[in-house]
Simulated assay, not measured.
Amino acid sequence: MHPEVIIHNSVSLDHAVTGFEVDLSQHYGALLAFEPGAVLAGSTTAKTGIELFMDITLPEAEADRHRPEARPDDRRPICVIVDSRGVLKGLLHFYRNMEHTKDVVVLVSETTPSDYLDYLREREYPFIRCGRERVDLRGALRELGERFGISRVVSDSGPELNNVLIREGLADTISLIVHPVIAGEGEKKLFDKAGGRTALEPEKAVPMEHGAVHLVYTVKKE
């Protein structure tokens, strides 16, 4: 069995993930309230986060080349990044230093460049290799649970990864913070390529500050 998977995102009223200002405090407060064992992101989202919110010129320090010491009392989630193409080569130290995560695990495939795998090994980043040309998310999440004892994963990513989670029937819950704005045409929309019809069961709708509403749905499994 793979871990429980929760898709979490902040969207506009027309389900755009771009074109409006996200309240990061609201977003991550709601995410961490799920008490995930792991937070999942795609490489594009991860790289965009570095470019938008971090000093990308910050060099890698010697301490960044080593896996942090595990503490039994550390309840922070691990950061899990899907990166079969090696997009984050030279950049993973930004996520190793994040305050709200305790470790970084990378999901790769059989066609992941060998120099990227060397980069991961040299810097002691654990990785799961599953899938031929792309990461087999079902298999990778199952191994994540078995190797790291993860029972709940929250996806904090963009449309591409979340669409796969829906299409492959991996998502159990959808959590959306809906902002009171219509982003309009030309913006990235969540679930634009999620496949056929997916039935949902509403769990809660909680008003938040600045007119946002936190909606949580259970995904009905056939």
Rank of each mutant, 00 (worst) to 15 (best):
G37A: 04
R123W: 09
D192S: 15
L190F: 03
I174R: 01
V104K: 01
A16N: 04
L117V: 15
H93G: 03
L31F: 06
E69Y: 01
L170W: 05
R76A: 06
P72M: 07
S10G: 06
L40R: 02
Y217N: 03
H8D: 05
V135L: 10
I177V: 15
D23M: 09
S175V: 04
E146C: 09
H214T: 01
E146Y: 03
Y28W: 14
P36H: 04
G184Q: 07
L13S: 13
L141T: 09
D172G: 14
E51T: 10
L88N: 00
L92D: 01
A61E: 13
L107H: 01
V206T: 15
Y95H: 13
M1C: 09
L24G: 09
A41L: 10
G49Q: 09
D192T: 11
G86K: 05
D73H: 09
T198M: 05
T57C: 02
G196Y: 11
F94D: 03
I78A: 04
V17Y: 00
V135G: 05
R123S: 04
I7D: 06
Y95D: 05
M208V: 01
A171I: 10
E21M: 12
G19T: 08
L144K: 03
A183M: 09
E133G: 06
I150R: 04
R76K: 14
L58N: 11
V135D: 05
I7W: 02
E160T: 15
V154S: 03
A61N: 10
K188T: 15
F34E: 14
I6Y: 00
D115K: 05
R96K: 10
E222Y: 09
D73I: 07
D14H: 11
L52H: 07
I56H: 07
K220E: 12
V213W: 00
F191L: 14
R129T: 12
E35C: 06
A194R: 07
A194C: 12
E185R: 15
C130E: 14
G196V: 08
H66N: 08
C130V: 11
H15M: 15
P202R: 05
I182C: 10
P72V: 11
F34S: 12
R96C: 06
H214M: 08
R123F: 04
H179P: 01
L58M: 13
R167T: 12
G169M: 08
A16Q: 02
H15V: 06
I150V: 15
E187C: 12
L13T: 13
T48Y: 02
R129P: 05
R85I: 03
P126H: 03
Y217V: 07
P72F: 06
V106L: 07
L190K: 03
K188W: 09
R65S: 12
D118A: 14
L137A: 10
R76M: 09
A16S: 14
L120G: 00
P202H: 07
L190R: 02
V105G: 02
S10P: 01
Y95A: 07
